[in-house]
Amino acid sequence: MNKKFDKVAYYPGCALEGTAQSYDRSTKAIGDKLGLKTVELENWNCCGAMEVKNIDPKLQTYLSARNLSIAQDMGFDKVMAPCNGCYHNLKKAEYDLKNDEGSREVVERLSGKAGHTTYEAGKVETIHALDWIKDSVGEEGIRDKVRDGLKGLKIANYYGCMYTRPRHIFPEKDQGEGSESTHKPHYMDDLLAAAGAENVEYPLKTACCGGAHTLSDSDTSTRLVLNLLQGAQACGADVIATECPTCHTGLEMHQVRAEKVFGKKTSVKILYFTQLLGLAMGVSPRKLGLQENFSDAMPLLKEKGII
């Protein structure tokens, strides 16, 4: 095991306390199974998400920087964020503080006003839940813990956009063999394959789902998501694995809407990769929050002998 990740600060962010509680619980459940410890940031705040970023991007940088300063004060040099939006914003704050004097000035001023440590770039590394598992226990660690496995389950891995774009805020990616790729990400594929799943070739793994426009311009989002869902089915997938609460909710919501509004029904199921890994390691579906998913995967999982 890579010692640098065996105990990390955990930043769940707002979504994992709300619509994506099952992602939170399944992340913690597989951490327990794999012997990886997480310590939640004390008194964390919103990363700035899209609401604050829309009004003032530098204020969003401050909000994300405050979370990084909490991690620093708690003695951590790694903070793990399973939500792509949080991961992206913390990474962007790191980049801005390294490269933009204006952002440094705002963060210093607001941190002083708020009375907490001013975060300095380079003190804390933000990692995604995928990095956490891949770089700590890796595929071998997963194989060691797999009980029943995901044999017979065909998966299309969907990474969405904020895990890899814009490329410049992810300097550790695209660093050759073994590193994550921004063009064709593979960490989720690697981990699920180690758990026995069969990954299908899915050319839309980072394609746009409409994201932030999911409510304001639903038809565009529904058409984009429908193509993602139909594409996954055409590739032979039973399941789309997700690693972002926004993607997950968007896929689920627009799967229902595509049927209602456009009369296009798709049957592919949508599950968090942590739920799939948990199932492979013998964690109960209830503990992984499968009952909270819109898309009911239970009959499929029973049919495949996974539960």
Partner: peptide, 8 residues
């Protein structure tokens, strides 16, 4: 918002 990390 996502791919350019810009405010909408």
């Amino acid at each position: 918002f996502c791919c350019a990390s810009k405010p909408i």
